[in-house]
Deep mutational scan, measured.
Amino acid sequence: SKDAAQYVYDEAQKGVTQVTVNGVTFKFDNWQKLLKYAQKLLN
């Protein structure tokens, strides 16, 4: 959902490398990768 994507995006902006959405945890090597993933979700 857009809300989940926005949440992931906001978390990535904080510099975190993992985020949990609806009980599913996504882990990334660095926050830039998390940010890229979030941007994909938002598009």
Rank of each mutant, 00 (worst) to 15 (best):
K40T: 04
Q39G: 02
A38T: 02
Q39N: 03
A38C: 15
V24L: 13
W31I: 07
V19K: 02
A4L: 08
V21I: 12
K36S: 06
N43W: 11
T20N: 03
Q6C: 15
A4W: 12
Q13H: 05
Q32F: 13
D29N: 12
G15A: 09
N30V: 10
L41Y: 02
L35W: 05
L42D: 00
G23K: 06
Q18R: 04
K33S: 05
N30A: 10
F28N: 01
D29Q: 12
A38Y: 04
A5R: 03
W31E: 00
F28T: 02
D3K: 02
Y37A: 01
L41D: 00
T20H: 10
L35M: 02
V24W: 14
A4G: 04
Q6N: 02
K27F: 15
L35A: 00
V24R: 06
V8W: 13
N43C: 15
E11M: 10
A12K: 04
G23E: 06
N30M: 10
D29E: 09
Q32C: 15
A5N: 07
V24I: 05
G15Q: 08
F26A: 03
K36V: 07
A4F: 09
A12H: 06
K36E: 06
K2S: 08
K36P: 01
D3N: 09
L34V: 01
T20A: 08
V19C: 15
K27H: 10
Q32H: 11
A12T: 08
K40N: 03
T25I: 11
A5T: 03
T25M: 10
N30P: 05
Q13Y: 08
Y7F: 11
V24G: 01
D10Q: 07
K14F: 11
L35S: 00
Y7I: 14
L34T: 00
Y37K: 02
A5F: 10
L42R: 01
Q32V: 07
Q32S: 04
D29W: 15
Q39S: 03
N22M: 15
A38K: 01
Y7M: 14
K33R: 09
N43K: 13
A38E: 00
V8H: 03
Q6P: 02
G15R: 04
E11R: 03
F28W: 09
V8F: 09
K33F: 09
L41V: 02
N22V: 15
K40Y: 06
Q39Y: 13
Q32N: 04
F28P: 01
Y37P: 00
K36L: 07
T17H: 06
Y37V: 03
V16H: 04
T25W: 10
K27P: 09
T25D: 04
K33D: 06
S1T: 10
N22G: 09
D29R: 12
Y37S: 01
Y37T: 03
Q39L: 10
D29K: 10
K40L: 10
K27C: 15
V16G: 05
T25A: 06
V24A: 05
Y7K: 08
K27M: 15
N22E: 09
Q6I: 06
G23P: 01
A4H: 07
Y9G: 13
V19I: 12
Q32P: 04
D10A: 08
Q39I: 06
L34P: 00
W31K: 00
V16M: 04
S1H: 13
K2R: 11
V24M: 11
A4R: 04
L42W: 08
Q39T: 04
K40A: 05
A4P: 13
A5E: 08
K2D: 12
G15S: 09
A4Y: 10
Q6T: 03
D10N: 08
D10P: 08
Q32Y: 11
V24P: 03
A12F: 12
